[in-house]
Amino acid sequence: MSADAGPGAVPAAERAAMESFVPSPATVKPAGAPPRSQDIATETAGDITVDNPRMCARGVDVFYAEKQAIVDVSLDIGQNEVLAMIGPSGCGKSTFLRCLNRMNDIIDVCRVTGRIELDGEDIYDRNVDVVQLRARVGMVFQKPNPFPKSIYDNVAYGPRIHGLASGRAELDDIVQSSLERAGLWSEVKDRLGESGTSLSGGQQQRLCIARAIAVSPEVILMDEPCSALDPIATARIEELIDELRRNYTIAIVTHSMQQAARVSQRTAYFHLGKLIEVGETNQIFTNPRHNLTEDYITGRFG
């Protein structure tokens, strides 16, 4: 980890704490060491760290009952970056995403081990309130899932439950600015009272994004946000993601490699629950280091 003090740099003490476990031999192998033959795929190609990480995952394993869905994944998500996670179906990329705001807690049989930090704090710590964590790490889902409420109430839902607005006027402001940032304001400003489910699919997904940013999260997780949308709606969401990057850290799971290439700065390739390779998006798509990554992005597999 280099020591340059960028705007998002971590305080020295925390960085030291982080460094104390980052280079653990199980996750990052010293350069030049021969690969162990039996579990070559656990060795992640490329650099899992970034200079100014917002979230750091180290040695994360996820089990659904007896079945292991994720094996020893370590990955940083940097400040103001879009991290794309790609890979064939069932490779664990969505599972990993859902670990980042503990959505897997809802599933009874799911067990997560390892360490995931948000700004240096272990989010699986006993003292962390999952409700507050999810307010800081928002989520947009694969299928648009607006609540059966008015457009206004959909966006105001989060600010209301977290008490973010002290009065009606302030709430109005939050709703308007969230809808504006999600690029939906001009389309719905005259019908805020209509049901959120009456919008088109692309509008619904932008409403869900507005709903997520209304609680001012630090990180936004997107689980295949465009998979249910047509190309035009997809293009709007992608533009939106690019704009949102200025204020938020974004992790996006996508099945579309073109989308990953268009919206992200870094890309992580998952395969059978393992993180195979991570690196600059440009490098992953032009010059992958791992042959599994190469097979996938060239369409020979998956």
């Binding site: 959505m103 409700v131 889902f141 059966p148 839902y157 439950i161 709903r211 609680v215």
Partner: peptide, 27 residues
């Protein structure tokens, strides 16, 4: 009531009872 509505609400940091009162029961 679709699971996606529950997840949407939990994903915004709502507690279980808030989700039930404000999302699930209205739906």
């Amino acid at each position: 009531v679709p699971q996606s509505l529950r997840e949407g609400s939990y994903g915004l940091g709502a507690t279980k009872s808030e989700t039930i009162r404000q999302v699930i029961l209205p739906a």
